[in-house]
Simulated scan of single mutants.
Amino acid sequence: MADTAPILLSETRGHILLLTINRPDRMNSISPDLSEALVRAFVEASADPDVRCIVLTAVGDRAFCAGADLKARAQEDKEGKPFQPLLSRAERYVFEAVYETIKPTIAALNGPAVAGGFELALACDLRVAAEHVTLGLPEAKRGKGAHFANVMLPRVVPSAIAFEMLYLGEYISAEDGRRWGLVNRVVPRGEALAEALCMAEAICENAPVSLRRMKETAIRSNGLPVPAALRLNEGISPYSSEDRVEGVAAFVEKRKPVWRGR
């Protein structure tokens, strides 16, 4: 009997959307179907006013994601199917879709995140890793490209560290990832998701309008000269929002604010 389990599980916990990659038999590797499901989930979450934070994790603790499904690609190579560059396909580039999501995103790394799996984690805003997690980009050893990491990794860590990871294709530990700013928190094995959800709950306590402004401005200002970046006016302005009025009133009245996201 064919396996009919969904490759991407989706669960709503209050204002948190929890997405779980469900391909443990293939080390949670990215197939075309999974890529499409991830893009759809993140795009829909961006447009859902009830979603204030997205947590991405995977089934099991052997791997968060091992990157592209190379067995599937090898079969396509045998069949003579040409490789389509990621930015030349009809479908949207999955890492770009995750990166540009206007809601805060957290990757809960339950296992190693390598190759495209590392890039998927890199596309998220925050990363929580279990202590046994390894991170790396073996693309140079496979004749592949690591295109998203080529662009993003030198923006996250010192360039020498980025080039070492890219050129050598060697893995680093979760603790080294934390030391270099790739990982926000390292927790015991099996606790990455719980810690990520705790962070997500704390994020959801804050004003949705402010969170969206912070995310959109940070993403769209990346690489711009400071004067141009300061003049961006992305999304709803928190300064003229109902949330700003409510936040100030709640502080003065010593109560918990009731956010409306407008």
Rank of each mutant, 00 (worst) to 15 (best):
G145L: 07
I102T: 13
F42A: 02
M214Q: 06
G261A: 05
M165C: 02
E216N: 07
F118C: 10
N206F: 07
N22Y: 11
E91Q: 14
V186Q: 03
V183E: 00
Y171T: 08
I30S: 12
P112F: 02
A66M: 15
L166E: 01
C65N: 14
G169H: 01
D243R: 02
R92S: 14
E175Y: 10
T105D: 03
V128Q: 08
I7F: 09
R212W: 05
N222S: 13
A113H: 07
E216F: 04
S46V: 05
L153H: 00
N222T: 10
R189W: 08
V248P: 05
G223V: 06
N233I: 06
A192I: 09
S35L: 07
L224V: 09
N28I: 12
E191F: 14
K78N: 13
S241R: 00
A63Q: 12
A130W: 01
G60I: 04
A2D: 11
D33Q: 14
I21P: 12
K81M: 11
H147N: 09
A160W: 10
E11N: 12
W259M: 02
G67T: 05
V55M: 07
V183I: 11
P104E: 00
L38C: 04
L197V: 09
R220H: 09
P208Y: 08
R179I: 05
R220C: 05
K71I: 12
M165L: 05
A2G: 12
A123M: 06
A74C: 07
E175T: 08
I219P: 03
E195L: 01
G60E: 11
V133A: 06
P257W: 06
R178N: 04
A160R: 04
N28H: 11
L135Q: 01
G111Q: 09
I30D: 07
G177F: 00
V245F: 03
R52G: 11
E201A: 09
F95R: 03
V51N: 06
E175L: 13
I172S: 01
A90S: 12
L18N: 13
E242T: 10
V226Q: 08
G143F: 06
T57W: 13
T12R: 15
L182C: 02
P154H: 00
A47Q: 13
T4L: 12
R127K: 13
I7N: 15
L70R: 15
E170N: 11
S35F: 07
G177V: 02
